[in-house]
Nucleic acid binder design. Structure first.
Lengths: 214, 214, 214, 214
DNA sequence: CATGAATGAGTGTTCATTCAT
DNA sequence: AATGAATGAACACTCATTCAT
């Protein structure tokens, strides 16, 4: 309304800008720290490494994060959330795309999510267990959720007569383990789109049709 | 042989006995340390914990092992060797037992090996990665060998027309991941013989026949 | 004088008002800081606590005070001056009130001064010594002045034949110590007027007449 | 019994000697640390100062004491105990020495105790309050005990008709404060035996007979 | 061989002070 | 003048390893 910014408006503008600036800085530190953690692992990473990588002073780090542990947890939560979001449900309606195509899409999406965040994936897959009970609990819960989602899906498909009546729980764990292994491999092997397709196809073909010649 | 123990003979006897004693002590420390490492993880384990568990003095520990890291590597190597030994080959001769039965036996044997050594398994699966590059390399090599064995077996079976022509490499990784996941689960769930059978059946049924209803 | 406010005159007016404003701000910060220091002690008090209590920004604090130490010294000087002012002399003229009444008044006035400034008293009595040599010197000087005043008074009274010829120096220290102890007690016990009277009476009766029954 | 030391006896001897050695070392560190604390005060004293003064490594310090705080508390407790021990009771029996002589002895003994441990006295009197709640509580308790002892003694003497019926509590605080002040003075003034006698006499004369000329 | 007291480099974290806005 | 984000020196404490006994 007022063509001239009143002091209060200016104040608001200032603090808004400051908050944005702060958020940008924070993200910057978060991102650079992720790389360090991912390279050296949690324990081998010193707070000195973090602040050096971020180009800030030691004290500044503690302005943004409560502790070395806290920033690690934040990084961890980020990936976990992204993976959760990248999984959708299976559509079993009349006009739904064929099951195989739907599954293919889901598997590819999940693999791509990890592939696109190699640093944090490395973090989760590699430096994690035994770190501290909280991390362990968080990861266990995450695995649990993934497993439950898989097992439920299989259950559903069984009720619909789409799949055989194998032990849904055990099969779900097998699938989860297989996917994790492919994610792990993609970490080191560069992980082109081609590689992703190959992994996806192998997983689907194996798990849906089995190895045996017919 | 010599009726009179010459000084040298006596020395030999002494040193032989001493060497045996030494070996026994060493094993004792290894075993007890394994338990501690397995409980608390590598980083949370202090050398103090190790010597206390072994009932020896701090200095004595360094008489037997070069460092905290060295004893960990030794423990690691032990399991890796045991698992290697517990896997045999597939017999493709005329009078060989049916493929499915052979595979079933191998999978069960491998799962049982890990199940019977929960401490060292926990060590390998949980506190290992990211520790130091040597550990990582060792584990990668181990995985590589397992994978190669699996891939070769699949290759063979493909040549024999026993299994379909899926991507042998990718399938081998899937199987490896699935097995690892079941091993991991068995760690926490007590792992009765029944559980093992269930896991084995699920793995075989899934991987050989696939999920799809026919 | 000048009918039109010259820029300089306007400047003066502005700066006068500004100076007054500044002084008011400063006092406000001083007063609030005193409370914090008194509650938590010098070392446990963070500059953050001070600026939070004063409702100013960190940087503003350093506009008014050179350092955390400087504001503490200023606070210290304030009380010391107030106590000095609250002590008068003993009137030994012909028509003067009786000595005992005069002394009673002085002691009560001193005790009341401390009682009425519990925060700064706590500061001086409790968090001060050992802080830094300057504080110690200041407190020592203050004590020295109190002691000198007491010793002189006793000396005078001795010359006038009003009191016995005890070691004036040593007696002065005893009195000072006793008063300090009562001040200290009053800090925690609320210190009603009644308590003050009781302390005053006990001090006077003890020091003038002694304990012994006659 | 056995003229030759058996292994176990030798072991005992070793560990006994070791324990003694340890105790000697500990005392050494304690003593040197006391001097540093006393010179610089608790807060200005760095663990580095302590280990440097004791001529040991940083880690060694923590072998003997749990923390900087812990060694301070130990030092504190030591003096407090010594002072407690240096005070006896007043003998009110038939053939007891005269009251004044008994009191004189007690006061002198207490003053001498502090005089003989200037470092720890300085510690208690100067760097103490506000440090941490535990120290404060300990000192308050100590003061409380001293006061109670004094007040009880006065009470007793009143019942025996030896002293006037002044407010025993208030008088006890006065005496305590006066003594503390003399202790404080003795810290800086070298504190010869003469000075002690002078203080003792002044305290007794003032408190027993009063200042007023008669 | 066995011991365990001694070591000291290295760690995460705090907080009085500065300075660009 | 006022702000508060940024700074970095300083700290107490840990723990794998050594070495005199």
């Amino acid at each position: 309304m007022a063509p001239l910014s009143s002091p209060s408006a200016e104040g608001d503008g200032r603090s808004t800008r400051a908050a944005a600036q702060r958020e940008r800085r924070r993200s910057e530190v978060l991102e650079r720290s992720l790389r360090v953690f991912s390279d050296k692992g949690y324990h081998a990473t010193r707070v000195s490494d973090l602040v050096e990588a971020a180009g800030i002073a030691r004290g500044t780090f503690y302005l943004y994060f409560e502790s070395k542990n806290a920033i690690f947890h934040e990084l961890l939560d980020d990936l976990l959330e992204q993976v959760r979001d990248s999984m959708g449900g299976v559509d079993t309606g009349q006009d739904a795309p064929p099951l195989r195509a739907q599954l293919r899409a889901i598997v590819r999406r999940v693999l791509a999510t990890f592939r696109d965040h190699p640093a944090v994936t490395r973090l989760v897959l590699r430096s994690a267990p035994g770190l501290d009970p909280d991390v362990d609990r968080k990861l266990a819960a995450f695995h649990g959720r993934l497993h439950a989602w898989l097992a439920d899906s299989i259950d559903n498909a069984q009720r619909l007569g789409l799949v055989r009546h194998l032990d849904a729980q055990a099969v779900a764990w097998s699938v989860l383990g297989a996917v994790k292994q492919h994610v792990e491999n993609a970490l080191d092997s560069g992980a082109s789109d081609d590689g992703l397709d190959r992994s996806t196809d192998a997983l689907l073909s194996l798990h849906l049709d089995g190895l045996l010649a017919r």
